[in-house]
Simulated scan of single mutants.
Amino acid sequence: MPRLQEIHANLVDRLQEARDQGWLGEVAAIETTMAAAAQKLEAMRERAAQPSTVHLGMPDFRTTAGRLTSDC
């Protein structure tokens, strides 16, 4: 996530430069890339907020522990 935040910050700088230079095609491309980066960052934040462990419970062997087979 830190790397993507760094990329997004760099895109902000590049967007300003493209606007200053009047590079309209570059402005559109950078805005599209920034939107995708922002969407990915939001998804990463949502994923980080979710619990990372799952409680599976404890297996219950009481019902099978005392069984005998009739094959003996």
Rank of each mutant, 00 (worst) to 15 (best):
Q5T: 07
V54A: 00
E26N: 15
I7E: 02
T63K: 04
L41D: 01
A28P: 09
W23V: 06
A36T: 14
E46G: 02
N10Y: 06
A38P: 03
R45Y: 02
D13H: 10
D60V: 12
A9D: 07
G57W: 04
A9C: 06
L15P: 06
I7M: 05
S52A: 06
A18I: 13
T53D: 03
E42I: 02
R47V: 07
E42F: 02
A48G: 07
A35I: 07
C72V: 13
A35L: 11
F61L: 14
L24W: 12
E26T: 15
A49W: 00
L24Y: 12
Q50E: 04
T63V: 09
M58T: 12
L15S: 01
A48I: 12
A65N: 10
E26Y: 08
K40H: 14
A43F: 08
L15K: 02
V12E: 11
D20K: 15
L41V: 08
E17V: 15
E31T: 11
A9V: 09
A48R: 05
G57Q: 02
A18Y: 09
K40L: 14
A36Y: 11
H55W: 04
A35N: 11
H8L: 14
T69C: 05
I7T: 09
S52W: 02
V12M: 12
W23T: 08
A9R: 02
G25K: 08
E6G: 06
E26F: 06
G57L: 04
N10C: 09
A9N: 08
A35H: 07
G22I: 08
A18K: 08
S70G: 10
T32A: 15
C72Y: 12
L68F: 08
Q21F: 13
P59E: 05
A29M: 06
H55M: 05
K40S: 12
A28Q: 15
D60G: 03
L24C: 05
V54N: 00
M34G: 04
P2I: 07
L4D: 03
T32N: 12
D20T: 15
I30S: 00
H8T: 14
V12T: 11
L11E: 04
A18G: 11
T64P: 04
I30W: 02
R67F: 14
G25C: 05
R19A: 12
P59D: 03
T53W: 06
D60P: 11
E46I: 06
T63L: 04
R14Q: 10
I30K: 00
